[in-house]
Design a protein around this nucleic acid. Sequence first.
DNA 1: CAGCCCAAAGGTATCAGATACCTTTGAGGA
DNA 2: TCCTCAAAGGTATCTGATACCTTTGGGCTG
Lengths: 240, 240
Amino acid sequence: MADDLANEILNELAPGASLPSEAELAERYAVSRLTIREAVKLLAGRGLLELSRGRRAIVREPDGAAFADFLTSMLNNDSKGLFDLVEVRLSLEVQSATLAAKRASRAGIAAVENALQGMRDTVEAASAEDPEADRRFHDFDVGFHEAIALASGNRVMGYLFEAMASPLRQGIQISRRGHANRGHTLFDTIQAHQRILEAIRDGNGRAAGEAMRLHLKDTERDIRNALSSMADPPTRQRTR
Amino acid sequence: MADDLANEILNELAPGASLPSEAELAERYAVSRLTIREAVKLLAGRGLLELSRGRRAIVREPDGAAFADFLTSMLNNDSKGLFDLVEVRLSLEVQSATLAAKRASRAGIAAVENALQGMRDTVEAASAEDPEADRRFHDFDVGFHEAIALASGNRVMGYLFEAMASPLRQGIQISRRGHANRGHTLFDTIQAHQRILEAIRDGNGRAAGEAMRLHLKDTERDIRNALSSMADPPTRQRTR
DNA sequence: CAGCCCAAAGGTATCAGATACCTTTGAGGA
DNA sequence: TCCTCAAAGGTATCTGATACCTTTGGGCTG
């Protein structure tokens, strides 16, 4: 019953809208407030509603967050998961870069350019040892890849990318360590991204895919390098 | 509160185990049964618990089912979603075929062979117009692709494939219609699969990926063909 | 008149105690 | 031995309250 209600409720509403109050829903569907609450919790569990105490629930634009939870918990269990994720990411991003080159709108390309420019600015503006700058660079890095996924015009691709984004963030952080170990600089990273961007701007799908592939292969090596140079493996136990 | 409880509960239990009764949980965590129920619904929404009336809840092995719900609801909205999915699938499956060729165990290859043999047997045993046989062929088809995803040894790949399986089933069904329209037979399908299998068996990653790519490109054409030949577009209205 | 403060209104979060109905299981009879 | 069926154990849902959070508008103060 509550399960059916969950679908009912969702079908009535567009993303971004806020739900009627629990009391109102209860009346409309002729069930108790409790049943409504359970249906709402179910949807929240799927990441389709955003709950907050004292305020109405909001219908979320689906963004693969539910899958993200799941991926994150998997990565916490073993470091192999991180490699698996990078492999999948390689495959998806090569494709999304290829598609972006063929389909990206002017605005889509601009978003990719902005992210890259952000990386450049961060590097130039940074003083020698600014941990904050490092984090910012990192964010622009993720943003660059996200912009490409969106520019591919493939919504499933976008969702998958979002789902992977948070576990990936962890991955990129690790890879940066390996990156430095291998004597690479942030400038190298920027150049790799530059090549991808140019291929997309040229509308050359093949080149864009290949540039992305090379970049990610390199990232993969970085991660491997970082993990092997770490004393204890990054397996995080589940909290009890 | 209920949200925290959800995590608590999950951390205490291994997949496959069944939860204590609601009353017992309520006592253990010193909250009302209602709160327990909400936490349980939340987990069920994430696909981490399996609920059934009158029986205890069971902790599920995560399998990407949550993401599947989400993909399915997307596909119901517009037919473009189906193309997007095929594009993503193309990218993932080319990769998984490549990896399977490099890594598949003897048992993994056997599973792929079995699926293919199942397709052959179904075709040979089928009487002219047996709708049941058609469904079976179909299942073996999906099974073939699933076996390859598993044989890739990449767990994330496996999960993603599972998540896509149910919406994909719909896609394959449509593509079969287009397949026939273009004068192709089931035998062609079997041959395409045969080529993929052989490349995997030979350990030739490049060939396996390429064979998979060709096969899926063909499927993509079939879907396009089927959709364009359908009088009304396959957009299913949301039920109200 | 502008800005701050606070209380009321509208919400959600949770509790307690019942009822309805489903599933499993074991005792008893054919 | 096998079938039937009722009791036991569970979940699904209802009703009616209480606690506490957020928003908002009116009134007070400077």
